[in-house]
Protein backbone atom coordinates (compact mmCIF):
# COMPACT_ATOMS: atom_id res chain seq x y z
CA UNK A 1 0.00 0.00 0.00
CA UNK A 2 1.33 3.48 -0.78
CA UNK A 3 0.61 5.89 2.03
CA UNK A 4 1.34 9.61 1.91
CA UNK A 5 1.97 11.74 5.00
CA UNK A 6 1.08 15.39 4.47
CA UNK A 7 3.67 17.89 5.71
CA UNK A 8 2.53 21.45 6.32
CA UNK A 9 4.89 24.05 7.77
CA UNK A 10 4.51 23.43 11.52
CA UNK A 11 3.39 19.79 11.30
CA UNK A 12 5.31 17.97 14.01
CA UNK A 13 3.98 14.41 14.09
CA UNK A 14 4.85 13.92 10.40
CA UNK A 15 8.05 11.99 11.08
CA UNK A 16 6.41 9.93 13.84
CA UNK A 17 3.68 8.85 11.43
CA UNK A 18 6.18 8.25 8.65
CA UNK A 19 8.17 6.03 11.02
CA UNK A 20 5.15 3.91 11.89
CA UNK A 21 4.13 3.40 8.27
CA UNK A 22 7.62 2.76 6.94
CA UNK A 23 9.54 1.12 9.78
CA UNK A 24 6.84 -0.58 11.82
CA UNK A 25 4.23 -1.47 9.17
CA UNK A 26 6.89 -1.78 6.43
CA UNK A 27 4.59 -0.15 3.91
CA UNK A 28 5.54 2.30 1.19
CA UNK A 29 5.58 5.74 2.89
CA UNK A 30 6.20 9.17 1.41
CA UNK A 31 6.21 12.65 2.93
CA UNK A 32 4.15 15.05 0.80
CA UNK A 33 5.03 18.75 0.69
CA UNK A 34 2.16 21.19 1.24
CA UNK A 35 2.72 22.67 -2.21
CA UNK A 36 1.98 19.36 -3.96
CA UNK A 37 -1.14 19.14 -6.08
CA UNK A 38 -1.13 15.53 -7.16
CA UNK A 39 -2.05 12.61 -4.89
CA UNK A 40 -2.97 10.06 -7.55
CA UNK A 41 -0.10 7.73 -6.67
CA UNK A 42 -1.38 7.15 -3.12
CA UNK A 43 -3.88 4.66 -1.72
CA UNK A 44 -4.31 6.65 1.46
CA UNK A 45 -3.10 9.94 2.91
CA UNK A 46 -2.62 10.89 6.54
CA UNK A 47 -2.73 14.44 7.90
CA UNK A 48 -0.51 14.24 10.97
CA UNK A 49 -0.62 16.22 14.20
CA UNK A 50 1.23 19.40 14.99
CA UNK A 51 0.73 23.12 14.73
CA UNK A 52 0.40 23.75 10.99
CA UNK A 53 1.20 27.41 10.31
CA UNK A 54 1.65 27.89 14.05
CA UNK A 55 -2.11 27.58 14.67
CA UNK A 56 -2.31 31.19 13.49
CA UNK A 57 -5.85 32.42 12.93
CA UNK A 58 -7.31 29.06 14.06
CA UNK A 59 -5.86 25.56 14.20
CA UNK A 60 -5.98 24.15 10.67
CA UNK A 61 -7.36 27.30 9.06
CA UNK A 62 -4.29 28.27 7.05
CA UNK A 63 -3.35 24.71 6.10
CA UNK A 64 -6.81 24.35 4.55
CA UNK A 65 -5.92 27.08 2.04
CA UNK A 66 -2.84 25.32 0.59
CA UNK A 67 -2.52 23.51 -2.75
CA UNK A 68 -2.18 20.19 -0.91
CA UNK A 69 -5.45 20.77 0.94
CA UNK A 70 -7.24 21.20 -2.36
CA UNK A 71 -5.70 17.97 -3.60
CA UNK A 72 -6.89 16.19 -0.43
CA UNK A 73 -10.48 17.29 -1.07
CA UNK A 74 -10.21 15.95 -4.58
CA UNK A 75 -8.62 12.69 -3.36
CA UNK A 76 -11.38 12.18 -0.78
CA UNK A 77 -14.10 12.80 -3.32
CA UNK A 78 -12.83 9.77 -5.24
CA UNK A 79 -13.52 7.62 -2.19
CA UNK A 80 -9.84 7.18 -1.25
CA UNK A 81 -8.80 6.91 2.38
CA UNK A 82 -7.96 10.02 4.39
CA UNK A 83 -7.05 10.05 8.08
CA UNK A 84 -6.58 13.27 10.05
CA UNK A 85 -4.92 12.99 13.45
CA UNK A 86 -5.18 15.88 15.95
CA UNK A 87 -4.20 18.94 13.88
CA UNK A 88 -5.05 16.81 10.83
CA UNK A 89 -8.60 16.40 12.19
CA UNK A 90 -8.77 20.18 12.68
CA UNK A 91 -7.71 20.70 9.06
CA UNK A 92 -10.35 18.23 7.83
CA UNK A 93 -13.10 20.15 9.64
CA UNK A 94 -11.77 23.42 8.22
CA UNK A 95 -11.97 21.81 4.77
CA UNK A 96 -15.56 20.73 5.53
CA UNK A 97 -14.60 17.17 4.69
CA UNK A 98 -15.85 16.45 8.20
CA UNK A 99 -18.65 18.23 10.04
CA UNK A 100 -18.26 20.23 13.24
CA UNK A 101 -15.29 22.09 14.71
CA UNK A 102 -12.61 21.61 17.34
CA UNK A 103 -12.70 24.35 19.97
CA UNK A 104 -10.26 25.11 22.81
CA UNK A 105 -10.42 22.55 25.62
CA UNK A 106 -12.90 23.28 28.36
CA UNK A 107 -10.09 24.06 30.85
CA UNK A 108 -8.25 26.18 28.25
CA UNK A 109 -5.09 24.15 28.79
CA UNK A 110 -3.01 21.84 26.69
CA UNK A 111 -3.69 18.26 27.82
CA UNK A 112 -1.23 15.41 27.30
CA UNK A 113 -2.35 12.06 28.74
CA UNK A 114 -3.70 8.66 27.85
CA UNK A 115 -7.45 8.24 27.52
CA UNK A 116 -9.87 5.36 27.04
CA UNK A 117 -11.97 5.34 23.89
CA UNK A 118 -14.89 3.23 22.82
CA UNK A 119 -14.79 2.34 19.13
CA UNK A 120 -18.28 3.09 17.87
CA UNK A 121 -18.06 2.54 14.14
CA UNK A 122 -16.10 -0.41 12.79
CA UNK A 123 -17.02 -0.03 9.16
CA UNK A 124 -14.35 2.58 8.33
CA UNK A 125 -11.03 1.73 6.70
CA UNK A 126 -9.29 2.71 9.94
CA UNK A 127 -11.38 0.66 12.37
CA UNK A 128 -12.41 -2.44 10.47
CA UNK A 129 -10.07 -4.73 12.42
CA UNK A 130 -11.44 -3.58 15.78
CA UNK A 131 -14.35 -5.14 17.70
CA UNK A 132 -17.54 -3.12 17.96
CA UNK A 133 -17.57 -1.10 21.23
CA UNK A 134 -14.07 -2.29 22.03
CA UNK A 135 -12.34 0.02 24.50
CA UNK A 136 -8.83 1.06 23.47
CA UNK A 137 -6.28 3.35 25.15
CA UNK A 138 -4.63 6.08 23.09
CA UNK A 139 -2.74 9.28 24.01
CA UNK A 140 -4.14 12.74 23.45
CA UNK A 141 -2.03 15.90 23.22
CA UNK A 142 -3.91 19.02 22.23
CA UNK A 143 -5.14 22.43 23.27
CA UNK A 144 -8.07 22.58 20.86
CA UNK A 145 -9.86 19.25 20.93
CA UNK A 146 -13.37 20.03 22.16
CA UNK A 147 -15.65 18.71 19.46
CA UNK A 148 -18.57 20.99 18.71
CA UNK A 149 -21.40 20.95 16.18
CA UNK A 150 -24.78 22.68 16.18
CA UNK A 151 -27.57 20.51 17.60
CA UNK A 152 -29.07 19.52 14.23
CA UNK A 153 -25.68 18.56 12.77
CA UNK A 154 -24.82 16.67 15.93
CA UNK A 155 -28.02 14.66 15.65
CA UNK A 156 -27.26 13.93 12.03
CA UNK A 157 -23.73 12.76 12.91
CA UNK A 158 -25.18 10.40 15.51
CA UNK A 159 -28.02 9.21 13.26
CA UNK A 160 -25.60 8.42 10.42
CA UNK A 161 -23.34 6.47 12.76
CA UNK A 162 -20.52 8.91 11.98
CA UNK A 163 -19.08 8.82 15.51
CA UNK A 164 -16.00 6.59 15.26
CA UNK A 165 -14.41 7.13 18.69
CA UNK A 166 -16.00 8.28 21.92
CA UNK A 167 -14.15 9.11 25.16
CA UNK A 168 -14.95 6.41 27.67
CA UNK A 169 -15.11 7.40 31.34
CA UNK A 170 -13.52 10.83 31.58
CA UNK A 171 -14.33 13.34 28.83
CA UNK A 172 -10.98 15.20 28.90
CA UNK A 173 -11.80 18.32 26.90
CA UNK A 174 -15.57 18.82 27.10
CA UNK A 175 -16.39 17.45 23.62
CA UNK A 176 -20.08 17.24 22.82
CA UNK A 177 -21.36 13.67 23.17
CA UNK A 178 -17.75 12.81 24.27
CA UNK A 179 -16.80 12.65 20.59
CA UNK A 180 -13.09 11.94 19.97
CA UNK A 181 -13.28 11.02 16.29
CA UNK A 182 -15.75 11.03 13.43
CA UNK A 183 -16.02 10.03 9.78
CA UNK A 184 -17.76 11.48 6.76
CA UNK A 185 -20.99 9.95 5.49
CA UNK A 186 -19.25 7.56 3.15
CA UNK A 187 -16.74 6.53 5.81
CA UNK A 188 -13.54 7.02 3.77
CA UNK A 189 -12.49 10.16 5.68
CA UNK A 190 -11.80 9.84 9.41
CA UNK A 191 -10.63 12.49 11.86
CA UNK A 192 -9.53 11.80 15.42
CA UNK A 193 -7.94 13.80 18.23
CA UNK A 194 -5.97 10.90 19.83
CA UNK A 195 -2.59 9.84 18.43
CA UNK A 196 -2.42 6.17 17.38
CA UNK A 197 1.17 6.64 16.13
CA UNK A 198 2.35 7.21 19.70
CA UNK A 199 1.21 3.86 21.02
CA UNK A 200 2.06 1.30 18.38
CA UNK A 201 5.23 -0.18 19.85
CA UNK A 202 5.97 -2.17 23.00
CA UNK A 203 8.81 0.15 23.92
CA UNK A 204 6.36 3.05 24.13
CA UNK A 205 4.10 1.18 26.51
CA UNK A 206 1.20 0.00 24.37
CA UNK A 207 0.02 -1.44 21.08
CA UNK A 208 -3.55 -0.19 20.76
CA UNK A 209 -2.59 2.23 18.00
CA UNK A 210 -1.64 -0.71 15.81
CA UNK A 211 -5.31 -1.69 15.60
CA UNK A 212 -5.90 1.41 13.53
CA UNK A 213 -2.91 0.86 11.27
CA UNK A 214 -3.72 -2.81 10.79
CA UNK A 215 -7.25 -1.86 9.80
CA UNK A 216 -5.83 0.46 7.16
CA UNK A 217 -3.43 -1.99 5.56
CA UNK A 218 -5.65 -5.07 5.91
Amino acid sequence: MKIGICVFPGSNCDYDTYYIVKDILQEDAELIDYTSKDLDRFDAVILPGGFSFGDYLRPGALASKTPLAEAIVNFASKGRYVLGICNGFQILTELKLLPGALLPNENDKFICKRVNLSVENISTAFTRKIEDKEVITLPIAHHDGRFYAPQDILEEIEANNQVVFRYQGENPNGSLNAIAGICNKSGNVVGMMPHPERISEDILGGLDGLKIWHSLIA
Partner: peptide
Amino acid sequence: IYTQYDFEVGTNTV
Protein backbone atom coordinates in the same frame (compact mmCIF):
# COMPACT_ATOMS: atom_id res chain seq x y z
CA ILE B 1 2.20 20.81 35.30
CA TYR B 2 3.46 18.01 33.10
CA THR B 3 0.16 17.13 31.46
CA GLN B 4 0.34 20.61 29.91
CA TYR B 5 3.54 19.55 28.16
CA ASP B 6 3.55 17.30 25.13
CA PHE B 7 5.94 14.70 26.52
CA GLU B 8 5.46 12.11 23.77
CA VAL B 9 5.86 13.91 20.43
CA GLY B 10 8.76 12.40 18.52
CA THR B 11 7.79 8.92 19.79
CA ASN B 12 11.08 8.44 21.61
CA THR B 13 9.77 8.83 25.17
CA VAL B 14 10.16 5.44 26.82
